[in-house]
């Protein structure tokens, strides 16, 4: 397990000065569910394994006991039907949350997500809004292999009408879930189990408008821009701290919302640093990394660049099981450091 202290400071106190509470990313997700189930009777949860910590770790502990098995529904082994049913209930005034404990299995629900949820607003003239949140959990490593490990954010961020969010911090794990569920549009919320143990002090939960949320700085500097999302933002942050010790100051931008994407912050940063390194937890071809670089390439003046933009991705191969192959498959902090230092001319 990779672990680092967090440099993100809580953004102020709440008006009633309620105390901050230290929770980890996994528990923060659970707190979002509690907040939503407590305050919004139209919220319910459906999916496989939601009555069992074996599937969803600390992220849903005892929700069924607190809120009842009618509102926290452990379902048949039917990704397509549960997701489709959530879309249908979302069209009828409810705010359902579908849980896919491994995002690989969510692929069986693509029709409900891509053909239905993402399209209904536009193709019916803005008259229907499937208010549904689909949570896909990325669960990599541990020799789990090709069908228990994927990061599919780039696929879904390609689809107009489907919002895609990926929290990197405990605060966002909670607040992006709240924002997703309160949003009238369908949202794919992707969390990564490699982040579950990271802790942060959180103020009390409150309503969040997803439309107000975009990329954020996790670290600031003028030498290089490192862009990530979810766990790759964490790698970027770790690398930025190490670089700072050797006198290199990096901007780290955590994208948070992949679709619809707001590239403004990245463009502003690269204009200042002249160097762009994207750390993408997915594959290379037609991926998020390429999208960020392309956006900068077509927007910024050619004189801005001090180094060729680079991306770090998974190799274009399914995840292996053997540990020696797994070790070289996933990028780590050192991968980011090596790439950044090469772009900085060896500094």
């Amino acid at each position: 397990m990779h672990k680092s202290a967090l440099s993100v400071k809580p953004s102020g106190t709440t008006p009633d000065a309620a105390p901050f509470k230290r929770v980890n990313y996994g528990v923060a997700i659970c707190e979002a569910f509690e907040y939503l189930l407590e305050n919004y009777p139209e919220v319910f949860i459906i999916g496989q394994g939601v009555w069992s910590p074996w599937y969803v770790g600390s992220t849903m502990t005892d929700l069924d006991k607190k809120f009842g098995k009618d509102r926290v529904i452990d379902s048949p082994v039917s990704e397509a039907a549960t997701t489709g049913a959530a879309v249908g209930a979302g069209l009828c005034g409810y705010k359902p949350i579908v849980i896919h404990p491994r995002i690989d299995f969510m692929i069986l629900a693509c029709d409900a997500m891509v053909n239905q949820a993402a399209k209904w607003s536009h193709m019916l003239g803005g008259q229907a809004h499937p208010n549904v949140t689909i949570r896909g959990v990325v669960n990599r490593g541990g020799e789990q292999g090709a069908q228990h490990s994927q990061a599919l954010h780039s696929w879904f961020a390609h689809i107009p009408g489907l919002r895609v969010v990926m929290p990197a911090t405990a605060r966002d794990a909670r607040d992006l879930m709240i924002a997703s569920v309160l949003c009238d549009d369908p949202v794919l919320y992707i969390d990564d189990r490699w982040l579950y143990d990271f802790e942060e002090d959180l103020p009390p939960a409150k309503p969040v408008d997803l439309r107000d949320i975009g990329p954020q700085y996790l670290h600031e500097g003028n030498d290089i821009t490192i862009v990530g999302a979810s766990y790759s933002s964490r790698l970027a942050l770790d690398a930025a701290k190490t670089l700072a010790a050797s006198g290199v100051q990096a901007d780290v931008i955590d994208l948070r919302v992949l679709n619809p994407i707001d590239p403004t912050l990245v463009h502003e940063s690269v204009k200042r640093t002249g160097r762009l390194l994207v750390v993408d937890g997915g594959w290379r071809t037609c991926g998020l990394g390429g999208e960020i670089i392309a956006g900068c390439a077509e927007t910024l003046d050619p004189t801005v660049w001090k180094a060729k933009p680079q991306r770090i991705t998974l190799p274009d191969a399914p995840a292996p099981t053997s540990r020696v192959l797994e070790d070289i498959y996933y990028p780590d902090e050192q991968t980011v450091l090596d790439a950044a230092r090469a772009m900085l001319g060896g500094r």
Partner: peptide
């Protein structure tokens, strides 16, 4: 078809 199931659940 599954959307109608969800509508029925609602």
């Amino acid at each position: 078809v599954p959307l109608a199931v969800g509508a029925g659940l609602a």
